[in-house]
Design a protein around this nucleic acid. Structure first.
Lengths: 174, 174
DNA sequence: ATGCGTGCAAAGTCTTTGCAGCTTC
DNA sequence: GAAGCTGCAAAGACTTTGCACGCAT
């Protein structure tokens, strides 16, 4: 079985657990995210355009509905920045958890997913540039805090808002 | 001079620095936030209702314009949660920075502002409950990372998304 | 066969914008 | 006085929803 297939199965299970179903559209959206290069975060509308381009016939409403659902199941990360839209990206931790320990260990191919699991964002309020960074400590801290409150962690987001070097050079705000 | 007055001056200075002006409405909005108990984060519409109730005549458009401006200046924190609206709250670090060192030290009254400067959020995707927590390490980490990239930090937000103990008991997702 | 899921179009909500008049520097 | 700011109303953008039909279980 392909590694990515484990994620599909895990999603199907999660869905069934709450009385929902796996459908063509949901599968297409899942596959779309699984094949998306890491580091891209897309809005619902962008997801729609791109899946359409790949031949999916899922409507915009369905995209909205599915993205929200998948985010609630922990499969996607729903990101919010100083800006009106919501962005989505694959929550690679979900995928990793779906793969059995032994398979993960033996398949060196897992490097495909593993290496950069979680990243965070540095946002510039002047240029609107969004830069990513990694920090291993962040998720650990999140887990510790969540545990204290009895929460089950789906995702953690660390966002630093500030002014980038380029932004500092701009004379005007708008 | 009252401690809060330093913030007003700092805001005025920041505004002038970028060619903007201090107006009645901006002052009213500032005062509103300065007098808001900590821990409340309000949407633009809520700010509008409440300032109206306090006698301000600032229109909703002005509220939108001012909130965004103040967030970009670092006076307000603009928070985003899995939900359509943006929420605003005072960035207490801005206020603290506005007060001269010596005044801050000698005025024990500063305890009014100091104690709980920065907090972060734990969001439940099932109940939509938002719980706050504090963690001193977070801001330090943010500063370190920002420095590495040459960013000037205005705010940092650490958001943990998961399922609360109560949420875990719910049988259904929606 | 049951009932969740989808597409479509319409409706909703939050946010932005053009413009004339007013205010701040 | 010039340039920024505000209010109002209209427009815009993103997201949600009602309903009838289709599809997964």
């Amino acid at each position: 079985m392909q590694l990515l297939e484990y994620t599909a199965n895990a999603l199907k299970e999660e869905l069934h657990q709450v009385g929902f179903r796996m459908t063509t559209q949901r599968r297409e959206i899942l596959d779309f995210f699984l094949n998306l290069p890491e580091g891209e975060h897309l809005s619902a509308q962008e997801v729609h355009q791109r899946t359409m381009a790949q031949g999916s016939r899922a409507s915009l409403s369905t995209i909205y509905r599915c993205l929200k659902l998948m985010a609630r199941l922990g499969l996607l990360r729903e990101l919010e920045f100083p800006n009106k839209e919501h962005y989505y990206e694959l929550n690679r931790e979900f995928c990793l958890n779906a793969i059995p320990e032994d398979v993960l260990r033996e398949a060196e191919a897992s490097e495909q997913l593993l290496p950069a699991s979680h990243h965070h964002h540095l946002v510039c309020v002047r240029t609107n540039e969004i830069r990513e960074f990694r920090n291993d400590q962040v998720c650990k801290t999140a887990r510790k805090i969540a545990e204290k409150y009895g929460y089950k962690v789906l995702d953690c987001q660390f966002t630093i808002i500030g002014v980038s070097p380029e932004g500092q050079l701009l004379p005007q705000l708008t």
